[in-house]
């Protein structure tokens, strides 16, 4: 299958299964909030608490280097939390839905897409506390915020791609979830979340920027915190990298598609 066909099928499946995606995203939300009395507030409190803890710990370390560390941090935590949540929930999707896949011929990545969309809801809910923190700390809300949705494209592609690769791996290898934990922890520190690019030694920057997630997070922080536009070249590089990673994920899925049924 050509790359165009892989991508074509992927987006067509999303369209074709829009009813299911809608239904399952709402189901996941309902399930998540059924038992907690705080309801949807939890999605907003969670990143807020995370930010407060990290701010308390790191703002003194960053003394004087960053102004308004809480917004600095929060703007980067937003895409990271989405990425982390999507990748983690993608891993188990094939095994969890084995019963369905055993009798219904449907595109198997649809469950991973559903996890990704579900995490988008959390991302948007987390925007509320971010704006509150900005207002509260007197941080200007820059007009560059309107570019934000554009940054979601590489973010979606990259998270989805890595999620699919790991979901395939998980069908064959039981230790995939452990390896993912290690991978995500390493990535957390290799992305500009707690720090900024200028705080890294230049020799290291050369390598870490190869990770599309680095540029995506950096770009989102530029839009929300600094109020500047990300460099177009960097944006295109990260977009291309993300498209490639999703392409790899789709390729792996397609390649393993016939074999899943023997393993699950």
């Amino acid at each position: 299958m050509t790359a165009a066909a892989l991508y074509g099928n992927f987006f067509y499946s999303i369209y074709d299964y829009r009813e299911y995606l809608k239904e399952s995203v709402f189901r996941d939300l309902r399930k998540k909030y059924k038992r907690s009395s705080l309801g949807y507030l939890w999605s907003m409190l969670n990143p807020l608490l995370m930010m407060i803890i990290l701010t308390v710990v790191f703002s003194s370390l960053m003394k004087g280097r960053v102004e308004n560390y809480s917004v600095f941090l929060f703007s980067a935590l937003l895409p990271w939390t989405y990425f982390n949540g999507t990748v983690k929930s993608c891993i188990g999707t094939i095994r969890q839905n084995a019963k369905i896949l055993d009798q219904l011929p449907i595109p198997k990545y649809i469950f991973s897409v559903s996890s990704s969309f579900y995490n988008f809801v959390d991302l948007f809910l987390a925007f509320v506390p971010l704006l509150l923190v900005m207002l509260f700390t007197g941080h200007p809300i820059h007009s560059t915020i309107i570019i934000f949705p554009l940054m979601l494209i590489p973010l979606f592609f990259f998270s989805m791609g890595l999620g699919l690769l790991l979901a395939v791996s998980n069908v064959f290898f039981e230790d995939t979830a452990h390896l993912t934990d290690v991978l995500l922890r390493a990535m957390y520190f290799l992305c500009p979340i707690l720090y900024n690019r200028d705080m890294l030694p230049p020799w290291l920057v050369k390598y870490v920027v190869l990770n599309p997630m680095f540029g995506i997070i950096e770009g989102i922080r530029q839009l929300l915190y600094f109020g500047t536009l990300p460099n177009l070249e960097t944006f295109l590089f990260n977009l291309a990298g993300s498209v490639l990673v999703l392409g790899l994920g789709l390729y792996a899925f397609n390649k393993a598609d016939d074999k899943f049924v023997y393993f699950i």
Binding site: D16, E19, S24, K34
Partner: peptide, 21 residues
Amino acid sequence: AGFDAELNAIENIYLSGALHK
């Protein structure tokens, strides 16, 4: 097969119908 144990009958009917587009 497509049912979710946490959901009730009506929610499951929706879910399983959606799975069949």
